[in-house]
Design a protein around this nucleic acid. Structure first.
Lengths: 193, 193
DNA sequence: CCTATACTAGAATATGGATTCTAATATGTC
DNA sequence: GACATATTAGAATCCATATTCTAGTATAGG
């Protein structure tokens, strides 16, 4: 029943991703998304209630994509692999990587979110925290504020920080970044402690 | 000659800083800046040719503020102090810190810049590179791509990465961050190498 | 072949914000 | 005191973008 669709939700999200990676949030206008896809603006609105929701969808998709494998590595207790996952992932997904690092509270904060989306976002954050928490427990025996922060630093903040400058100028982080992340991981998470 | 000024450039820049730190780039409208200052929009435009230029002024001011002391530490050959400078600085200047980390090429990239501003920006970047280069030379004997990257990682990327998550939610980085930055610095820059 | 419907098309509308403009207002100078 | 001018004031303009709306179109099901 009904006409065959010429454009899918995914196509619009893809277009938004491309625009976001290339020109930042400001360049993701509905008109631009439509043009990028070859669709009329009406069709974009047929799929997405609003621009904000389209963007939210995009963030969620990317965060999810990143997080799944990251958590897998963690679940196996392989912290180093998880730490190295960031540089590797952004090499494999440059556009997504750029957007992941570009992500700012503020970008999503504007406007109010449907229950649906807020929930998915919360759930993602919870999964991540839970994953780290259980890794920390496995690694250190118990979870304190101290060693939780330590793990976040080694697993997340350092890899992201190391990779950011490259993504910002649309280049891929060089191999050396992995060495530095590794050295840091070993120094901060290694030994007895 | 002429009327006494009620509002200065600095007042507008301060207002912009506050707005930027609180609500991100989108919330820095000329109207908002004017209201925050108690001035009419006309007076803002009397001081700044455009919103872009006001923002550029703000970025430059902050980057300069940050960089001066950072380079001083480096010039004394005190790399660790330079690495620890970031967490300390953002504690001292929370709004500026937030904005410094919020800074995105894209925010300045939109629109075209007066020669004047482009020059100041380039000059800042040059000073920074030069400072790091000479520190690297002093520390490692010679400057290679490898050890330059290593220094940037330890002096910049790690401290910034470590501090970011706190600034994003308007909190001050805890003391532990300094420990982690130090441990990383020692691991990455310490020893013979 | 008819109908309901999912979707395409893109024009019309609404809004927000940057920038411009015109008119007043002080203040130092002559 | 009159002039020139820097500045205040804020209304008017312009423009880009989100969102809405109205019409047409293709397709599955009967």
């Amino acid at each position: 029943m009904g006409r065959k669709a010429l454009y899918t939700r995914d196509q619009f999200v893809d277009a938004a991703l491309k625009l976001l990676a290339e020109g930042g949030p400001g360049s993701v206008t509905i008109k631009a998304v439509a043009e990028e896809t070859g669709a009329p603006v009406g069709s974009v609105y047929h799929r997405f209630l609003s621009r904000n929701i389209l963007l939210a969808e995009l963030w969620l998709r990317i965060i999810d994509l990143f997080q799944v494998e990251f958590l897998e590595a963690l679940a196996q207790g392989d912290g180093l692999r998880a730490a190295l996952y960031t540089p590797q992932w952004v090499r494999k997904h440059p556009k997504e990587g750029k957007v992941l690092l570009m992500y700012r509270q503020e970008d999503l904060a504007s406007g109010t979110w449907p229950e649906d989306i807020r929930e998915r976002a919360l759930s993602l954050r919870e999964e991540l925290n839970e994953g780290i928490r259980s890794f920390v427990k496995h690694r250190f025996g118990r979870v304190t504020e101290q060693n939780f922060s330590r793990a976040v630093f080694a697993l997340f903040d350092v890899p992201h920080g190391a990779v950011r400058r490259y993504m910002e100028v649309d280049t891929v982080p060089p191999k050396q970044v992995d060495d530095l992340v590794r050295e840091t991981y070993d120094a901060v998470m290694g030994g007895d402690r």
